[in-house]
Amino acid sequence: MLKKLSQFTLALIGLTVLFSSCKKTYDSIQVVDGKKIQDYITANNLTVIEDSLKTGYYYQILNPGTGTALYSTSDSVLYNLSVKGLENGTVYWASSLNGNFGTLGGYTNVLSPVDNTIFATVGVTAIRDVILRLKPGGSARILLPSYLVYGKNGSGTVPSNENIDMTITTAPEKSQIALDDRVINDIIKKNSLTMIKDPSRVYYSISTPGTGTDKISLSSTVIANYTLRFADGTVSQTNVDGTFSAVLGNLGVRGWGDVIPGKLTAGGKIRLLIPSDRGYGPVGIPPSLPKNAVLDFDIEIVSVTN
């Protein structure tokens, strides 16, 4: 009996050793991501800094910015982001002059596309950590392991376990009003426009005041043709078939009502450069109208009803 038991025990030990030798070990995602990022740094000869808490990301200050003080968690920060794949270089999304993020420094850890597209909103502490190292007008690069961004599920067109190469650029201005005014003046200069600045901070140019007899007020119903462009000249919307009708004072774009009453009648044509707070503000209209976007309108008043 003891002999049989010993043989059984030896056989069991042998099977255990056999199965153990056949078992494949897998590296954790932290190890896998870390190796890919290190290989990327080496291949591109990058000079980067590992984050002080060693959570897995690396950063490089491209331009420290200017000013007398660093950002703090209570400072207003205006910034743009680009997000691309570390290995494949695919740009998944990027904010630009057409819109920007604007929040207090302590809340910049939220990663959400400026145009509210299909990409998920996630918390990325690295963004806040690096932004707080910059001054206004500064920029930085962050190499993010997948587990600190979209993880194993990915998001939108970002695949599973995708490491991210991110660029952050902060605006020289610390208020959205000042940033909007610079963007508008850049449009004017680029296109050699002659514009008047309304007290509402909307810039306008009237090409035809109109020949109608009905005066326009905020309570007027107007039928209008219009073309909407973004700051980079991209056409966002057109409606030129006389089907757009609205009470002027009820429009989401308050910039129309700021300028048009008393200046145009039916047949009038005007160009408006509207700062973001007189447009769709910090929310925008997803997915086509970005947050904090300056709006460039060409408008023709077709008819007026009072």
Rank of each mutant, 00 (worst) to 15 (best):
F8I: 13
L10E: 07
L10N: 08
I13M: 12
L15P: 03
T16G: 12
L18R: 11
F19M: 14
C22M: 14
C22I: 13
K24H: 06
D27C: 07
S28C: 06
G34T: 12
Q38I: 14
Y40H: 15
I41F: 09
L46D: 09
L46V: 09
L53E: 15
T55L: 13
Y57I: 11
I61L: 08
N63Y: 06
G65L: 07
T66A: 15
S72M: 02
S72G: 15
K84S: 14
K84M: 13
K84A: 10
G85F: 03
V91W: 03
Y92K: 12
S95W: 00
S95Y: 00
L97P: 00
N100D: 05
T103M: 03
L104H: 08
G105D: 04
Y107S: 13
T108H: 08
N109E: 09
L111S: 05
V114A: 10
D115K: 05
I118Q: 15
F119G: 06
A120V: 06
G123Y: 06
V124P: 07
I127P: 00
R128D: 02
D129P: 00
V130F: 00
R133N: 12
K135F: 14
P136W: 12
P136L: 13
P145K: 07
L148V: 10
V149Y: 06
V149W: 03
G151V: 11
G151D: 11
K152I: 12
K152S: 13
K152H: 07
N153F: 02
N153A: 12
G154N: 12
G156L: 11
T157V: 09
E162L: 04
M166Q: 04
T167V: 12
T169R: 11
A171T: 03
E173R: 07
K174M: 12
S175Y: 03
L179D: 01
D180M: 06
D180V: 01
R182W: 00
V183D: 00
D186M: 02
D186A: 15
K189V: 02
N191F: 01
S192A: 13
M195S: 01
I196W: 00
P199A: 13
R201L: 11
R201F: 08
Y203L: 01
S205N: 14
P209L: 01
T211I: 11
T213Y: 08
S217A: 10
T221I: 15
T221F: 02
V222T: 11
I223C: 02
A224N: 01
Y226K: 01
T227V: 13
T227F: 00
T227M: 02
R229M: 09
A231R: 01
G233N: 08
T238W: 03
T238V: 15
N239E: 13
D241P: 05
F244Y: 07
G249L: 09
G249C: 12
G249V: 05
N250W: 04
V259A: 02
K263W: 01
L264F: 03
L264P: 04
A266W: 10
A266S: 09
D277H: 10
G279C: 04
V283C: 01
P287C: 05
L289D: 00
V294M: 03
L295T: 03
F297M: 05
F297L: 08
V302Y: 10
S303H: 07
